[in-house]
C-alpha cells in the first residue's frame, strides 16, 4: 500500500480537510475532483441560500443525474395517470428528468425520502461559486453507485401513483452527472430547505 498526499489536479495545491470526504474541493481554484479509478475533475453546483436563512446552514451533496428516459409500456391495476408523464408533458412517452441521489451516508428510509423528495420537486436554484465557509456534509456515495440507484427512483415514482403497478417497460440513460450542493438549515426536526 502506498500513501499519497491529495493535491488539486488543476493547481497542485494540497487539499486540507478534517473529514473523510470522497469529493475533494480545492478552495484555491475551486476545482472539485474524485478518485474513482483515476483522478477525475467533476462538475459541481453550489446552490445559493435564501437570504432569510442565516443560522445553522449546511450544504448537503446530491448526485444530480441528467437522464433521458422512455416509457414503452406501463400497466397498472386500477389508477390510470402516469406520474412520470408529468415530466414529459403533452402525452409524450419520453423526455428528460434530473434524478437526485443523496451522496452522504443515509439509511434506507432517509435515502428514499431525500431522493424522491428532490426528484419530484425538480428544484430551481441560483448558483454561487464558493461555499462561503458554510459546512458541507461529506460525500460517501460514488458516482457509479448513484447511477445504479437511478432506476429505483424512476420506478418508485411510477409505482407510488394510484393503482398497483404490474408491468413497466422503460429505458433510462444517464447523460450527465454533477455533484450539487443544496442548502439546508438544521432545525429541531431535522433539515429544512434553505433555498
Amino acid at each position: 500500500m502506498k500513501v499519497v498526499q491529495i493535491k488539486c489536479p488543476r493547481c497542485q495545491q494540497p487539499i486540507n480537510s478534517k473529514v473523510k470526504d470522497l469529493a475533494f474541493y480545492c478552495s484555491h481554484c475551486r476545482t472539485m475532483h474524485v478518485r474513482d479509478g483515476g483522478v477525475n475533475v467533476i462538475d459541481f453546483d453550489i446552490a445559493e441560500f435564501n437570504p432569510g436563512a442565516q443560522q445553522d446552514r449546511v450544504y448537503m451533496p446530491f448526485w444530480r443525474l441528467f437522464t433521458n428516459f422512455n416509457i414503452n409500456q406501463s400497466k397498472s391495476a386500477g389508477g390510470a395517470i402516469y406520474k412520470l408523464g408529468k415530466f414529459l408533458g403533452g402525452g409524450s412517452n419520453s423526455g428528460n428528468v434530473f434524478i437526485y441521489i443523496p451522496a452522504w451516508e443515509t439509511n434506507v428510509s432517509e435515502f428514499k425520502h431525500w431522493a424522491i423528495g428532490l426528484t419530484e420537486a425538480q428544484p430551481m436554484y441560483s448558483l454561487r461559486n464558493d461555499f462561503n465557509n458554510i459546512e458541507r456534509t461529506p460525500t460517501v456515495v460514488t458516482r457509479e453507485e448513484a447511477t445504479q440507484m437511478a432506476d429505483f427512483v424512476i420506478v418508485t415514482m411510477e409505482a407510488e401513483k394510484p393503482g398497483t403497478l404490474q408491468y413497466l417497460d422503460y429505458s433510462l440513460n444517464v447523460q450527465d452527472t454533477r455533484l450539487v450542493y443544496m442548502p439546508y438549515v438544521r432545525g429541531q426536526n431535522g433539515f429544512a430547505p434553505g433555498l
Binding site: 500500500m1 502506498k2 500513501v3 498526499q5 491529495i6 494540497p14 487539499i15 480537510s17 473523510k20 470526504d21
Partner: peptide, 30 residues
C-alpha cells in the same frame, strides 16, 4: 505522511485519511 513525515495510522478498508500532525488529506492507493 508524505507531506510532514509524521507516522500515520491507516484504517483498513478506507482510502481517505487525514494526517493528524499537518492536516493534509491523504489517499491510500492500491
Amino acid at each position: 505522511c508524505p507531506a510532514c513525515g509524521g507516522a500515520i495510522k491507516v484504517n483498513e478498508g478506507e482510502h481517505v485519511l487525514n494526517c493528524q500532525y499537518c492536516g493534509s488529506t491523504l489517499w491510500a492507493e492500491g
